[in-house]
Simulated assay, not measured.
Amino acid sequence: MRLVGGASRCAGTLELKHQGEWRRATSGDVVDYFEMEAAAAFCRDLNCGSAVSLRKRQVSYQSLWLLIAECRPDYDLPRCVMSWNASSVLELTCSDSVRLLNGTSLCSGRLEVNYNQSNQSKQSWTSVCEDHFDQQDAEVVCRELGCGPPSALQGALHGDMGAPVWSKEFQCEGHESTLLDCRSSNSTRSSCSPGKAVGLTCSEPIRLVGGASRCAGTLEMKLGEWRPVYTMARTLREPAAFCKHLDCGSDVSVKKRELSNTPMWLLRFFCEPSYFSMMGCLQSPTITSESFTTGSVMELTCSGKPIRIRIRIRILY
């Protein structure tokens, strides 16, 4: 496989060589979380970082290689590809310099950094020492991967491959676009031991927009791009889960608002959103470039963080 036409070797249109012939790749009717899991596997095979986005682009009707949906999320490519005539191709973007491995979601795992970017034939990935990594560094990584802010930073959570090789200390200020844009210490340290590799959990990209506070507004989620969430409001457990994830207390009110000509994400039926798997409930029921553009979106008002009042009582005798 290869990515062509992008800004780097880790971004562009996905092409596959099958039965001796290179063709652009396409998939089924939807782009969803399970497709993103497959994209993560493609990025690893290409020796790139984590999958950041997977989109469909309209092209002229042509012969493509179809990735068979039943093979998701772990493609065995020779058995999962067939010839297909279609008018949309897959655009995949992987990160160039960082990736998360062995996590419970696309936004968690053991952090690895590519420390040999200048030589494509000798790309080298290594974990990072926990002692040389802080909250501001984590904010940069989570943003680089298209995830929400960091919610957990702890070593030895996602497996350890021995003592980390990268021993320079990152000195991010928190606003950098990529981790390798950050300054790092000039001298290396040799004090890092096995079991001290950085384990990072970024929050899943969820937000409320257009309301009176950050805990009120239209629910939007990011799976490659930000979209409002189409809802059929089956239960109140979903709004409660979103409020909890946003650290906004419990839900207070849920309303529907009709939108048109706006791409939306759809929540799968019978999917229980939780702190680590909300993105797993998303899909885009799109079969054309028009996407899913008409329906009800969720207007959510959360209670906000509870106010804790400390009362000091002095008893006089």
Rank of each mutant, 00 (worst) to 15 (best):
M1R: 11
A7N: 13
T13E: 14
V31R: 00
A40T: 13
A40V: 11
L46G: 06
G49K: 10
L54C: 03
R55G: 09
K56M: 09
Y61W: 13
S63D: 14
S63Q: 14
L64C: 03
L64P: 05
L66Y: 07
A69N: 13
E70R: 04
R72T: 01
D74I: 03
V81A: 07
A86Y: 15
L92D: 05
C94I: 07
L100H: 06
G103F: 06
L106N: 06
L106T: 01
C107Y: 00
C107N: 00
G109W: 03
Y115S: 10
N116H: 09
Q117I: 05
S118L: 15
S118G: 13
S118T: 15
Q120H: 15
Q120C: 13
W125P: 04
C129L: 02
D131C: 12
F133M: 08
Q136Y: 11
E139F: 08
V140T: 04
C142G: 05
G146M: 10
C147K: 00
A163G: 01
P164S: 03
Q171E: 12
Q171T: 01
Q171S: 08
E173S: 03
H175D: 13
E176Q: 05
C192S: 06
C192D: 02
C192W: 04
G195W: 07
S203Q: 11
E204N: 00
I206T: 01
R207I: 06
G211P: 00
G211Q: 01
A212G: 11
A212S: 15
A212K: 08
C215V: 02
A216S: 15
G217V: 02
T218F: 02
E220G: 00
M221Y: 00
G224F: 06
E225V: 10
M232T: 12
T235R: 04
P239I: 05
D247Y: 06
C248Q: 01
G249M: 05
V252F: 11
V252E: 13
K256N: 12
E258S: 10
T262P: 05
P263Y: 03
E272D: 09
F276N: 10
L282Q: 05
T293H: 05
M298N: 04
L300A: 04
T301L: 08
C302P: 08
R308Q: 15
L316H: 14
